[in-house]
């Protein structure tokens, strides 16, 4: 036992010595070489650290996706907001009222909007199965085209093509508050039983969520905008925070190929946490200057 402990300590001391004394020298030497190469190379050698990160990130995602496809069971923690989606649509069906879905108010080149449109596809499948009216107001033409395509496909897959209404996905206004005023008016007139907000939201988040609250709707929100989360948390029944929004499509689909991506992402997150802890420790003992340079352009 003592021998094992001593061996482990020896290893740790060796690793720490390497980190503190050897690495900085190697990096300094490399930086001098890199400075010479950078000036005449088409390849951005100064971004090699970013390249390493991209390679590790992609490998992790692809590896976990491969394992998932091979049938390896992957654990996904429960996300109550997403579990509530089906129940909330069921409530709308019982009440005979529509479901309102807003895929954010950003353009389609925003990854949050793509996540929102993906979730819309899953929600539309459920509303199609239950024959519940769905209303999707959008702010950008490209989101309109994508939204219509996704909802139509969901209705076709559910065998309810005849129930599909092209105007259920509707361009409302290109301006933030004209959009908000129209949607708020709709909420107060039609009193949708369920409001789902998934995507990028800005100052209108509380205007929408408070109106929905006043109209007595069940509300589920999800956004990666940290500044809007407090508003949704205050006014909605369930809120998906940050990366939960991006995980939603995979979570709702439960397809191994999709969940594999989530696990890969979690693995990289663990690496980042470890890197932060090492950085904090080194900076605390004032020996971390070289370590910080690893994360800057070389």
């Amino acid at each position: 036992m003592i021998k094992t402990t001593r061996t482990t300590l020896n290893y740790l001391t060796g690793i720490l010595t390497t980190i503190i004394f050897v690495f900085p020298e190697v990096i300094r030497a490399q930086s001098e070489e890199v400075a010479e190469i950078v000036t005449d190379s088409l390849f951005r050698v100064d971004r090699i650290n970013a390249l390493i990160f991209v390679v590790v990130f992609c490998s992790a995602i692809l590896l976990y996706t491969k394992w998932a496809k091979a049938g390896k069971p992957l654990f996904l923690r429960k996300i109550p907001g997403l579990d509530a989606v089906e129940e909330a649509v069921g409530r709308a069906t019982e009440m005979g009222r529509p479901v309102l879905f807003i895929p954010g108010i950003a353009e389609l080149d925003e990854i949050e909007t793509i996540a929102g449109v993906s979730i819309l596809g899953r929600v539309a499948k459920i509303t199609a199965q239950y024959d519940t009216p769905l209303m999707v107001p959008v702010r950008y033409p490209l989101v309109l085209a994508a939204g219509q395509e996704v909802v139509e496909q969901a209705y076709i897959e559910a065998g309810k093509q005849d129930s599909y209404d092209k105007d259920s996905v509707r361009y409302v206004a290109g301006e933030q508050f004209s959009f908000t005023a129209t949607v708020n008016g709709y909420m107060m007139r039609e009193r949708p039983a369920t409001n789902i907000y998934m995507g990028a939201f800005f100052a209108e988040s509380l205007l929408l969520a408070e109106t929905g609250n006043a109209a007595g709707s069940i509300q589920i929100a999800g956004t990666a905008r940290p500044e809007q989360l407090p508003f949704f948390i205050a006014a909605c029944d369930y809120t998906l925070m940050g990366e939960e929004l991006y995980a939603a499509s995979a979570y709702l689909s439960r397809e191994p190929i999709m969940t594999g991506g989530l696990k890969g992402q979690d693995f990289v997150k663990m690496l980042i946490i470890v890197a932060i802890i090492i950085g904090v420790l080194l900076a605390t003992f004032d020996v971390g200057e070289w370590y910080i340079h690893l994360f800057e352009e070389v």
């Binding site: 793509i114 939960e244 991006y246």
Partner: peptide, 11 residues
């Protein structure tokens, strides 16, 4: 977290 989620979704 959100940036990693976005990168993973982009991939």
């Amino acid at each position: 977290g959100a940036a990693l989620g976005a990168a993973s979704m982009s991939l």
